[in-house]
Amino acid sequence: MAERTPWSLSGALRGLRARKTIDESTWEDLEEALLIADFGPDITEALMDQMRAQVTKYSATDPEDLNRMLREALEERLAKYDTTLKLSDRPAVVLVVGVNGVGKTTTIGKLAKFVATAGRSVVVGAADTFRAAAVDQLATWAERAGVDIVRPQMEGQDPSAVAYQTVEWAIAHGTEIVIIDTAGRLQTKSGLMDELSKIRRVIEKQAPIAEVLLVLDATTGQNGLAQAEAFLEHAGVTGLVLTKLDGSAKGGFVLAVQERTGIPVKLVGNGEGIGDLAGFTPHAFAAALIG
């Protein structure tokens, strides 16, 4: 409920750890805890099997051991992929995509600040020409981050054109990093998904795309998988950004997304402030989940 401390798997696992030995109810609690953390039925089942096998193998009886094994297993699974952002091209073009309301524009604001702080020149492209006032929202973030922005020349302009102009601008001005905002779209709208493929094609005429970041909302459930697969197909996603981690949801579903699609989580957003963005560290993420 409305506790100030964020919910974590550790809370749910507390009851589990309070027991002296591992018995059938331990497993039930564990399954419940994993399901509530949005890991989803598949991953939950896999983790359960793995834990059962390990407990049998090491004849573990202490729930504390089980807890440790779980954390290690999660860490291992999360650390399987390379989580570094590759921004070595010049200009390095980053395309940010996602469904509606996951925090794409906010993430761009934070990312722009993050990169600008590292001493790189940044330009953001407001290719979300669909939603009301999205351009203004991005402009505000750009101002806060102290970076340049390329706006559409007219209302409702083709987003691909804006993306093209942004990259053009960056090449002309020698800007190092280009971040392009896109309109939120549900993965089921094939017309809009095709538009993403077009934006990609158009950008690639001038410069290779360094990263396509899919922004996922931590409160999302198993639909996150469907989102990732669709965006991977149409936009060639290279990395995930998990936002709203400051809420009570922990986004266990990203593990399933990562395993199913092979796309690593690269960034995590945990607040509305411009500095609330961090690189993804499997160790810290697992620790936050398990406690």
Binding site: M1, L35, A37, A218, T219, T220, G221, G247, A249
Partner: peptide, 28 residues
């Protein structure tokens, strides 16, 4: 958001306590 995961209940209960909403709208 219709896509919300297991956290929906926790969030909803928090809002119920906070603003005591009278109805729900399902979006997306």
């Amino acid at each position: 958001d219709a896509m919300t995961g297991q956290d929906a209940v926790a969030t909803a209960l928090a809002f119920q306590e906070g603003v005591d909403f009278t109805g729900v709208v399902l979006s997306k």
